[in-house]
Simulated assay, not measured.
Amino acid sequence: MTSRVSAALDAARAEGRGALIGYLPIGYPDLQTSIDAAVTLAENGVDILELGPPYSDPVMDGLVIQEATQAALAAGFRLRDTFEAVREITRRTSVPVLVMTYWNPIYQFGIDRFADGLAEAGGAGLITPDITPDAAGEWIRASERTGLDRVFLAAPTSTDERLKMIVEASTGFVYTVSTMGITGERADLDAAARKLVSRLREHGAAHACVGIGISNADHVAGVVEYSDGAIVGTALVRALRDGGLESLGETARALSAGTARASN
């Protein structure tokens, strides 16, 4: 089964640009607005949607995203709302939809049950930040059965052996994290991400996209020089929070302007 995520990355590459991957939490500020927000991204230059079901212990998220997910939970979000959101979004746009989720909610819900629900709703796959391929056998089997993409994370601290395992287990792309924990100077982050993407390529990664606190078009332009795409979250969530759908669309368009690659 052809990966819609890989196809979107290849289509961007054929147009001489990197892809823009946009993250939003599902259910913020309410379920319908979060659906409309995802469609707004798709209509304003985002190539792949990354939607996050709110979770009570979002250890890897920054403050802006944490506050949004806590608000969504307080408003009554339930994991099953993910399927309703994905179903309506995929009815309204052909942009592939990945769900980025911590592993415990999926495990509690039922791995096969969640995979079936996501596939039926039209989702493209899962980004799983807190589970490694060697611990994900049941998910790998479910994804192969349903045709969903598996996006695992790679970090600069990963050994070559682990990077090889991540590349072999991932489909769609490898989510490239420049640093773990608190971020430092931007130049250092770029250097770390660039080196990590190079290592992933050496291990055979067809697609690697970078998420490192990217917040403007210049950041996007820098990242797509050496990777397949730039992943943006906080800047989009902040735009939605502060200015609603109109501000979100403007921010997405501004970020998209950075995806064109300089001519060689």
Rank of each mutant, 00 (worst) to 15 (best):
T2E: 14
V5K: 03
A8K: 12
L9Y: 04
L9E: 08
D10T: 13
R13A: 15
A14E: 14
E15R: 15
R17P: 03
G18T: 14
L20V: 10
L20N: 05
I21L: 15
G22C: 08
P25C: 07
Q32F: 00
S34K: 04
A37T: 07
A38K: 07
L41A: 06
L41P: 07
D47I: 03
D47E: 15
I48G: 01
I48C: 04
P54C: 01
Y55A: 08
D57T: 04
P58R: 08
P58D: 11
D61R: 02
D61M: 02
G62Q: 11
L63D: 14
I65P: 00
I65C: 01
E67T: 00
A68G: 01
A71H: 10
A72V: 01
A72R: 01
L73V: 05
L73M: 12
R78M: 11
L79D: 04
R87S: 13
R91L: 10
R91Y: 08
T93M: 10
S94F: 00
L98W: 06
M100W: 07
N104L: 04
P105M: 01
P105D: 03
I106D: 02
Y107K: 08
G110D: 00
D116F: 00
G117A: 03
A119S: 12
G123T: 10
A124D: 09
I127A: 12
T128L: 15
T128V: 15
P133K: 13
P133Q: 14
A136Q: 10
R141G: 07
S143D: 13
E144P: 00
G147R: 12
D149Y: 03
A155Q: 10
P156A: 11
T157G: 03
T157Y: 06
T157E: 06
E168W: 04
A169S: 14
S170N: 09
S178V: 06
S178I: 12
T179E: 15
T179K: 14
I182P: 00
T183I: 10
E185T: 01
E185Q: 14
K195W: 05
S198V: 06
R199W: 09
R201Y: 12
R201W: 08
E202G: 06
A205S: 02
A205K: 10
A206R: 15
V210K: 11
I212R: 13
D218G: 04
V220I: 14
A221W: 04
G222Q: 15
V223K: 11
V224L: 02
D228V: 04
A230P: 00
A230Y: 04
I231W: 07
R238W: 04
L245W: 04
E246H: 01
R253K: 14
S256N: 14
G258P: 03
A262M: 11
